[in-house]
Simulated assay, not measured.
Amino acid sequence: MSKQQLDFILRLSAENPPPANATPPQMREWFEAINAQTPIAEGATIETISVGPCPAELIRLPGSDEGKLMIYYHGGGFLFGSPRSHRTIATHLAKASGATVLSVDYRLAPEHPAPTAHDDAYAAYLWALDHGYQPESVVLSGDSAGGNLALAAAVRARDNGVPLPSCLVLMSPALDLASEGESHRTLADAPLVNRELMGLFNAVYVGAGDLRSPKVTPFYGDLSGLPPVLVHVGSWELLRDDSITLADRITATGASAELKVWEGMCHSWQLFAPMLEEGMASIVEAGAFVRRHTA
């Protein structure tokens, strides 16, 4: 493990904490700024398009397979984040998978509370099917809140009788919004996402609504009949048990869920690739999984 690399990155992050008493626009500005300098994959081209109710970035590298589409939903607790802030992950996923990547700029809370982001995520998948992509060539993926959206879009497609994507790639998915997992207590002060920040995310997106509702998380519902799922999570994050429990529940239905707990890694460490060896390694493994499961 590249502990020295991660420790250095976290020390730098601690020197630029979220602004106190910030408005949502100020939080977004802060988050965009701290991710603006992270290198993207060399040779990546980015085209802005519309997918249903929201814009998106269509990312290609030389040699990208135009017939394969990896839909990517960024993290940020439904409050901040964008395709721009997550270009490091999205462009390197395009490189590792050989697919074109569609990074969705879904609408954010509190201006657009639940279930807006979930509706936008599902609309992006329908857009792909309506624009000639075959379901066996489409992947749904995301980190943190985006992992929630990727899984939720697949569950909604199953429930609506829509053809399912080839596979799912989930990185540190935020699923247990009711904080019932043990890691929500034992790792409540973990880096990047702690119990206080999770409370803020829930407040702005779900408000007084039901944290267990399928409109805001698929975690507590029926997880049968899904395509193969790859789940990566760090051992040092509050959301660790979200992933462990999810994989257990999916495999209990007879479906396939590959879980890897990355020792010593914090929440969404892929954002630090290529400055962190494990960040790039996770993306490369995700790309290999996509190559195996797409036609």
Rank of each mutant, 00 (worst) to 15 (best):
V229I: 15
T217R: 03
D222V: 09
L192F: 12
F201L: 02
I250M: 00
L200A: 13
A188P: 01
S235F: 06
G234V: 00
G234P: 11
P191M: 04
R195S: 15
L187G: 12
V204A: 08
A174C: 09
G199N: 13
V233H: 00
C167Q: 02
D241V: 05
G181K: 08
D210H: 02
T245G: 09
A174G: 05
A208K: 11
H232S: 12
L192E: 02
D222Y: 04
I250Q: 02
P214Y: 10
L230P: 00
A203G: 08
S166G: 12
L211M: 04
L175D: 10
D189H: 09
R249M: 05
D248W: 13
E180S: 10
V233M: 01
D242V: 08
M198C: 02
R249T: 10
S183F: 14
R249I: 10
H184S: 10
L192G: 02
G225Q: 05
Y220V: 15
P214L: 15
A178V: 07
G207P: 04
A208S: 06
V193N: 01
L211W: 06
S243Y: 02
V229M: 05
V193I: 14
V206A: 09
S183E: 04
I244N: 07
L177G: 07
L197W: 15
V204T: 14
N202W: 05
L230C: 01
G221A: 06
E180K: 15
D242G: 05
L197C: 04
P214S: 08
H184R: 06
D241W: 11
N194A: 10
A203T: 05
P228Q: 12
P173K: 11
L168P: 01
D222M: 13
T217Q: 14
F219H: 08
V193Q: 06
L239A: 01
P191L: 14
G225M: 12
H232E: 04
D189T: 15
L168N: 07
E180F: 05
T186K: 03
Y220R: 03
L230H: 07
F219N: 02
V216I: 03
N202Q: 13
V204Y: 12
V204N: 02
L238I: 09
L238N: 03
G221R: 13
F201W: 15
L238Q: 11
S213V: 09
D242F: 00
V193W: 01
G199L: 13
L211A: 04
L175F: 08
M198H: 01
L200Y: 07
V193P: 03
A178M: 07
L168T: 11
L197D: 04
S235K: 10
G234L: 09
L192A: 06
R185E: 13
V233P: 01
A190R: 04
Y220T: 14
V206N: 05
A174R: 09
S166I: 00
S235P: 07
K215F: 07
L177E: 14
S172I: 09
V229Q: 10
G221C: 08
H232W: 09
P191C: 05
S213Q: 11
T186C: 06
V204I: 12
D242R: 00
T217A: 13
A247Y: 02
R185L: 08
G221V: 07
R212N: 13
T217L: 06
P228M: 04
